[in-house]
Design a protein around this nucleic acid. Sequence first.
DNA 1: TATGAATGAGTATTCATTCAT
DNA 2: AATGAATGAATACTCATTCAT
Lengths: 202, 202, 202, 202
Amino acid sequence: MPATATSKGERSAAELKAAALRVIARQGYLSTKIGDITAEAGKSAGIFYRYFTDKDDLLRSIADDFAAALRERVVEQSGEGHVLDGIDDIRRHVRAYWDIYCDHRAEMTAIYEASLVSAEFAAHWDGMRARHVTVWTAHVAEARRLAAPDVDARLTALAVVSMIERFCQVVAPPETEAEGDAAVEALTRLAAHGLLPPDPPR
Amino acid sequence: MPATATSKGERSAAELKAAALRVIARQGYLSTKIGDITAEAGKSAGIFYRYFTDKDDLLRSIADDFAAALRERVVEQSGEGHVLDGIDDIRRHVRAYWDIYCDHRAEMTAIYEASLVSAEFAAHWDGMRARHVTVWTAHVAEARRLAAPDVDARLTALAVVSMIERFCQVVAPPETEAEGDAAVEALTRLAAHGLLPPDPPR
Amino acid sequence: MPATATSKGERSAAELKAAALRVIARQGYLSTKIGDITAEAGKSAGIFYRYFTDKDDLLRSIADDFAAALRERVVEQSGEGHVLDGIDDIRRHVRAYWDIYCDHRAEMTAIYEASLVSAEFAAHWDGMRARHVTVWTAHVAEARRLAAPDVDARLTALAVVSMIERFCQVVAPPETEAEGDAAVEALTRLAAHGLLPPDPPR
Amino acid sequence: MPATATSKGERSAAELKAAALRVIARQGYLSTKIGDITAEAGKSAGIFYRYFTDKDDLLRSIADDFAAALRERVVEQSGEGHVLDGIDDIRRHVRAYWDIYCDHRAEMTAIYEASLVSAEFAAHWDGMRARHVTVWTAHVAEARRLAAPDVDARLTALAVVSMIERFCQVVAPPETEAEGDAAVEALTRLAAHGLLPPDPPR
DNA sequence: TATGAATGAGTATTCATTCAT
DNA sequence: AATGAATGAATACTCATTCAT
């Protein structure tokens, strides 16, 4: 056998995952039955269990792929400055999450929906959010010139993360690129300056 | 007969609803089976169907009760100023949602979870959010001195609403009252001024 | 207490029976639930079981009433000739069954439908038919100048009875009296002379 | 693979139908539960729903098979004369229905019983009877030398059809062939000449 | 590796019947 | 006598999972 990097089995598993993501994008994770996935993949129902022990196992695998994809992105972006010292940095962070959400809507939908019903995926989603919050907590502390993050900084970071998370769930992906830009801009401005006009200098 | 004119049937229906809310608070709506509810109420399974045609019907009834409770709150609060001209007004709005969420966590959880799986409740939740967004859109337009709300004001409002909605889901209800205050304060400050310090006067 | 021939209890039982007959006339016996009957009677569900042990018991009672009504009719008609020696006698018999069917459609429907599902009522209906067949068997034998009914006479009688029985189920009760007369006439002529014209005399 | 190209699935569906017919022949359609059928087929309950959505769907399928079988018979018999000009033609028609009834007792029982409880099958049975009545109406008109069938011809035809229908329900299938012949003969003679002896030639 | 028929456990639902009031 | 809430057994139906081919 030649050095086909992907054996037939690996390809089948990948096809099932791809099919699953298509179905999930269409009807959500909770409403998706195993049979929907195999049908979408044009395969028989039984085959699912050769590659996955159950629906959670499939999702675990999808989540792993997703995590790997994220790691690659981060690597790509490394080298950029880490210091949040202005609205541009906020925009960059917002945009990063937004782009990820647009590109991996199905994966995130799946993990999120599963988190409502399964302790395991609740922990998974919480973990992702916690990392996100940690990043933002540092930024908040920085912006506030705190020596170390306090409870309040963490709460504020959680608010930012909540905003981004839900906003993306509701809005992404946009119809046009312009819409996407507007969405990112709205988030960015709000996160940066809030709703109220700056106090007028005396 | 005591002054409570509620018939035994009405009381039973109410007991089932109360039991349902307790179970939902514990395990979520989607994971709750009819049998869980009747067991929690200490009744036999069949009785459920004397009062509700199915789980969705129960939720519809719960949602109606919830809507009525909301209307009462709004009436109580009427008389207060409607103009958003400072951080205090933002705080008041945030606090209102926060309090509702703390007091009606199970109801909101149920409707929200159902919205992921049922078109009917998706519409219900979207409607609630849309009303919320409309209110905030007006406020944003005001704060920005806009003659009329523009697309961007609406996006910003959606960001605010997303933040509050998701933040409450993650945090509420708090262990102590102080925690609640801190949460509300964090949301308020972020919504009002954002993360960045005001531009220093030259 | 005055000499009210019917106590309140007896009246309630009668009301339930009357209600049952109305419902059965409307939707058939098999589709009728206990609750339909008590609702029709404007009573609560539980009361049914004070007067009847179950649906079969009710039907038994209805069947008894019906049998009594039949007996009265027969008494009224006694005195008329019993000999079948012409089409008029056939007509009289047909008409009698037809009238009974029109007047007691619900009762007969109930017993008949029950006979498809319950051995007891199958026996009941078969018994009624058997008596009917016996009468007609005698007539057939007479018409054929047989000393004693033979197998064939019994089969022919069964054919006549089947015809009347089923025809009434399908047609009765008629909209107008004229329709009823036509129906009876059609049955009578067929039973008397059959479809074919008499052999022409040589 | 043998010459029978029927897939395993088709065979299973057929087995379920066959099992259903056996059970129905034994206990009637209305008393038959899904579980009775799968048990009779030696299968688990769930399998039923791979092939049929519910009991009505099964019956629909059975009715279709039955209709197809009838159509084949009719084709076989075509070529025979269509004119009713004597007792032999009557006998032929009677015999045809009788044979069908004997061969397809379960099917007809099922559709008939369902017709008492379901509008759909009531329409189905009525349709079958209506076609039957139409055929006989033409014959009656012919025998009576009518230019066109009148109301009375139709009523008479309905009487004939009623007779055959109910008679078969009660008697078929016979124990021996001779009994069957006698049954057909009794129906035929009654339909042809009625009960009364022909008027004696003067 | 793939198929798709079969299984069985879990859940929903109905309704005759009982029972406290 | 009457009410109507409550029970529980019977039954329907779904779907993840297994298994023979």
